[in-house]
Each structure stands twice: as structure tokens, then as C-alpha cells.
Design a protein around this nucleic acid. Structure first.
Length: 421
DNA sequence: CCAGACGTTGTT
DNA sequence: GTCTGG
DNA sequence: CCAGACGTTGTT
DNA sequence: GTCTGG
């Protein structure tokens, strides 16, 4: 649940939107660069996302608890699975012999259900007390299973008020022994679905209201012990959501398009080829429709905010172009269509080309995909640690440190980012 | 979270 | 069914 | 019959 | 939705 969401925004835009919602930001990651968070309308587990949280050391809020040296660590008890040892064969290990009994189940039960936090102990113990965060998104996807799972229809869920969606989350920081890079991870907490989403799924992410008292409580670094107050924040969303089907193309992780935020049946949806080619496309009046203010479309606004519309007054240009186009392309007849498509999309031709491969066009040269499955030895030896190793490492205490309120970019670990379903 | 790969066996 | 990549 | 394509110029 | 190639 909530493994896939949308965050097609630059950190600077996120920052601005949060501040607008009374959520101060002291620091934010760069928009560009190697370490920049990913901007994607098809955000998958493992991607580099954005979280909003108090600026604390890597050990989280509250005083630093003295880290025990490996071997005499008594905290193994509440860390359900301290298998990190498996990532680097410890001296004289009976490999796997001291494997935690939870090993098997842990991998399959990975999730952060709100009710699993209510009970003491477990792998979330430290994080829920000291490492709470908000995971920022435009909204999330949920697949409606029909016909006994034969067909899956993706739905997009967003706030009706159009604000950023703030998920209650937990973060962590791990560092491998033979790697100097720190890995930040996060997970989204789930709870029962509210009435609006029941038809889709029985679980939903915990959504806190932007700038609310509840949200501030959740992030308050002065609370570094789990409490009833905190637990009580984890409840189904009681505000208004918008839920609607979107293009199936969002199912393929490689695809990425702002059109994934647009209702599949909406008039302005161009991913629906039938709509596009079906309408009388040679109308010279198209621009009149497209430029008429009555179209409220928040989606268009999102795209603008997302910075995907950078060409200015398109209306004038299009007007002239349409005239020319009609003269010159009367036989071809494609130009007016294209123009309309551009208008509907609110994208320049270049942008459209970039983002619509998956939806408008039927797959260009289908990207040669590496086999997802490689020989075990090769994978283990040469590809290094995988996502699941990151998960395992989460149970480990974090050795190193680091710094009010801050936006920080984190890695997400797929296994913890999802609710096992 | 979803989509896609997973195999190429061995002889009555 | 199960694992993996994105 | 089905699968796949169906576009791509330009610009203050 | 509609046309084309196979």
C-alpha cells in the first residue's frame, strides 16, 4: 500500500509549498545533482524521496544513547533482527547459525502498520520514538483489483484542497562497515482505510494535515519516547480526498508522465488516444476552448508548479500557428491535432516527447531490459548489497552522526516502504 | 507498489 | 509462486 | 482476425 | 477511433 506515489516536484517547489502551509523549512536538498531527490510522477520504492522532519543527529531525537559495541549488545532484544552481520561475515561466524528466528518472517512481514507500533518492542521501537518524519507527495496510487485480480486499475488519490500530501513516516540511517556512505531510509505508516477509500483497499497511509497541531506533534523532537499521544495521531484521514482512475501506464515503473495525475476519462486526458483522435480535431476554434479560463484543472497547475511548462504565452503562438497550420497542413491535418494536444497537455513539444513516450506513443524502441534475475553468485559478488540488505541493516544501531526543522533527502528501502499485501 | 522474469529439464 | 528492478 | 501505430516544424 | 500490415 502506498508503495507508489507521485512527487514530480523540485525540492524548491516542495519547500515553497510547505512554507505556504505553515511548515517552516530551514534547509532543503538541491534541485539538481547526483544527490538530488528524484522527481517522478511514478515514484517507486527505492527512489530518492523527500521527507520533512526535525533536524536531529542520525541517532534521532533526544539524548544520544551510548552505542554498544557489537558482541555485548543488549539491545538486540528489542531489535527484532540484527542480521546485518550477514552482510559482512563476522569473525568465526557459523554463517547463518545465529540467524534470528525472525529472519524469514521479517522479510515477508515488512510493513509499518499503525497497530504494530502500539505494541512495545519490535524493529520500529527506536524509530517510532526518535525518528518520526513526514513523507511528502502529491498523492499516491492504489490499484483496484477487479475480476478476482485479473485486472488492476490504477487510481490516484490526492487531497481535495490540492495541498501536498503529508504521510506520517519513520526514517532511519544506516552505514555499512565497508562503506563510508550513509544510507537514509524511510517508511510510510499505514492504518485502516477511511470511508472514501474502502472500495479501493482496506489500508491507507496515515495522512496528517499540513501545518496542523497533529503534524507538529508528530515531528516534535522533544518527544523522544513513544506515547499514547503519538499513537493517537495514526488514524484514517478524516478530510476530503479525490480518487479517480488514471492511465494504466503508471503500472510500468519505467514510465513517467504528468498525465498520470489526470483522470483517465477526463476530457483533457490525452493519454486516451480514442479521445484525442476521436474528436473533430481540425477545428480552428480549438484554441478558444483551450484558452477559456473556465477550465479550472488543478492538474494543469500541478504541472506548472512542477516546472514542466516553461514556454510562456502559448495561446498567442498557437493562434498564429493554427492559422498557418490550417493553410499549410490542410492535407496533412496533423498540425491542428498536435496543437490541440499540446494545449491539452500544457506541455511544449519537447516536454511532451519526453514524458509521453509511454502513454501517447506506443513504446518507442522498447528499452532493452536487463534480465531482472541474475545468477546468484554474480549478483552477490559484483552488485553488492541489494535493497533487502538495506532493510536488514535497519535493525542495526547507527554508528555515526551529524544537525530545527529540515528537508532532507533520503533513500527509501522498498521492503520497509511497503505494506506487505 | 506493479511488471516481468523465472526454464531450456532429458529418453518410456 | 517468488524474486527483482524500477 | 489482431496488434500496433497514430506525432515530432514553430516561440514572445 | 481508425487505419495498416501481417
Amino acid at each position: 500500500m502506498c508503495g507508489r506515489y507521485s512527487l514530480g516536484l523540485r525540492p524548491a517547489q516542495v519547500r515553497q509549498m510547505l512554507q505556504h502551509d505553515n511548515m517552516p523549512v530551514d534547509d532543503a536538498p538541491e534541485d539538481e545533482g547526483d544527490n538530488a531527490p528524484r522527481q517522478s510522477y511514478n515514484f517507486a520504492p527505492g527512489y530518492h524521496g523527500i521527507v520533512y522532519r526535525a533536524d536531529t543527529p542520525d541517532w534521532g531525537a533526544g539524548p544520544h544513547r551510548h552505542a554498544k559495541k557489537a558482541g555485548d549488545d543488549t539491545e538486540a532484544a528489542d531489535e527484532a533482527a540484527d542480521q546485518v552481520s550477514s552482510t559482512s561475515p563476522g569473525g568465526g561466524d557459523g554463517a547463518g547459525s545465529d540467524r534470528n528466528p525472525d529472519y524469514g518472517s521479517m522479510m515477508k512481514t515488512i510493513n509499518c502498520r499503525d497497530d504494530s507500533l502500539a505494541q512495545g518492542g519490535g524493529m520500529w521501537n527506536t524509530m517510532k520514538a526518535r525518528k518520526r518524519c513526514i513523507v511528502v507527495a502529491q498523492g499516491f496510487y492504489e490499484w483496484l483489483k477487479k475480476d478476482g485480480g485479473r485486472e488492476k486499475i490504477p487510481h490516484f488519490v490526492k487531497r481535495r484542497d490540492g495541498a501536498l500530501m503529508c504521510f506520517a513516516g519513520l526514517w532511519d540511517c544506516v552505514q555499512y562497515e565497508d562503506d563510508e556512505k550513509k544510507h537514509y531510509t524511510y517508511t510510510i505508516i499505514t492504518t485502516d482505510s477511511n470511508k472514501q477509500l474502502k472500495f479501493l483497499h482496506d489500508r491507507m497511509p496515515v495522512i496528517l494535515n499540513n501545518g496542523s497541531e497533529e503534524l507538529r506533534t508528530w515531528l516534535d523532537p522533544h518527544r523522544y519516547e513513544w506515547s499514547k499521544d503519538l499513537q493517537s495521531l495514526l488514524k484514517p484521514f478524516d478530510g476530503e480526498l479525490e480518487v479517480y482512475p488514471v492511465s494504466k501506464d503508471v503500472g510500468k515503473v519505467g514510465n513517467n508522465s504528468p498525465t498520470f495525475l489526470i483522470p483517465i476519462d477526463s476530457k483533457e486526458n490525452k493519454s486516451n488516444i480514442a479521445n484525442f483522435f476521436g474528436k473533430g480535431a481540425s477545428t480552428v476554434k480549438t484554441k478558444a476552448e483551450a484558452s477559456s479560463p473556465p477550465q479550472k484543472q488543478p492538474e494543469v497547475e500541478i504541472k506548472k508548479e512542477a516546472g514542466f511548462v516553461e514556454d510562456g504565452s502559448r495561446d498567442d503562438v498557437d493562434t498564429a500557428d493554427n492559422v498557418n497550420g490550417d493553410k499549410a497542413k490542410d492535407e496533412g491535418g496533423n498540425t491542428p491535432k498536435t496543437t490541440k494536444l499540446n494545449q491539452l497537455l500544457g506541455l511544449s513539444a519537447k516536454r511532451r516527447k519526453k514524458f509521453l513516450r509511454g502513454s501517447l506513443r506506443r513504446k518507442l524502441p522498447s528499452p532493452r531490459q536487463r534480465p531482472s534475475r541474475l545468477p546468484h553468485l554474480e549478483r552477490k559478488g559484483e552488485l553488492g548489497l541489494g535493497r533487502r540488505s538495506v532493510l536488514r541493516a535497519m535493525a542495526q544501531k547507527v554508528p555515526r552522526n551529524r544537525s530545527k526543522r529540515v528537508l532532507e533527502r533520503l533513500h527509501s528501502s522498498s521492503a520497509i516502504a511497503l505494506e506487505g499485501i
